[in-house]
Amino acid sequence: MTASDPILSVRDLTARIVSRKQIVDAVKGVSFDIARGEAVGFVGESGCGKSVTARAIMRLAPEGTRVELGGSVHFDGQELLPMSEAAMRDVRGRRIAMVFQDPMTSLNPVITVGAQIDDILRRHTGLSGRAARARTVELLDQVGIPAPAQRADDYPHQFSGGMRQRVLIAIAISCDPDLLIADEPTTALDVTVQAQILRLLLRLREERGMSLMLITHDFGVVAGMVERVNVMYGGRIVEAASVDDIFRAPTHDYTRALLAAVPRLDRHGVAP
């Protein structure tokens, strides 16, 4: 089950969120590996610790809180937790990139999409001026944005939700990360757009041999996308199995309950 050559190896990760009002043990000892080029799904309901786990790897804390981490996060030969903030900034975005649920709030509304990507390219890859813009257009094209050269000069509000999510994915892959963390990337989107984004993520992953950590509450999203699934509940991984096994023979009661709750097209309901 354990990957032979893990790019990410997490052991006994704990995360305690300290905010003004309360202290929450959000992650209570989580261990898993993600191999090079492998896609792993993390499935669970809100509050199960899946997003905190992802942010802990990136060492990001929710606004207005402080997070105390324990355990180890080993990424491509480096231990991330004791790393300095400056060194961590170099890992973030360049080696590990993240795509969030809400494509509205993740982009700066007053800067054109192209300028936002140019900026990241200049900072992380040292490309300058025209070279950066050429790369930006190429990236926008790769994520399936039509007429990328023109769209680069548009502002975020001129894009639909799905197109905005494509822009975020373009930003995420701009520095060729080894690991892409996608946190509920399609939850805010329509089914038709969701299908397009999932296809895009699948294609990019295969083209670039990048590892993918796909976080969702919806088993339908992970079904065709990942090789293995970790089911999280109450800050712990309660079931870890290959995607085929988990759909065919879920062993944990919670996994079964989650699977049973997914509305399906092939089962007649009790509708009046």
């Binding site: 606004e63 809180t65 105390e68 981490l69 903030e85």
Partner: peptide
């Protein structure tokens, strides 16, 4: 092996 960090550097925790 514990680390303490905060997001959005502008406003330290």
């Amino acid at each position: 092996d514990a680390a303490i960090f905060s997001l959005a550097g502008a406003e330290p925790a």
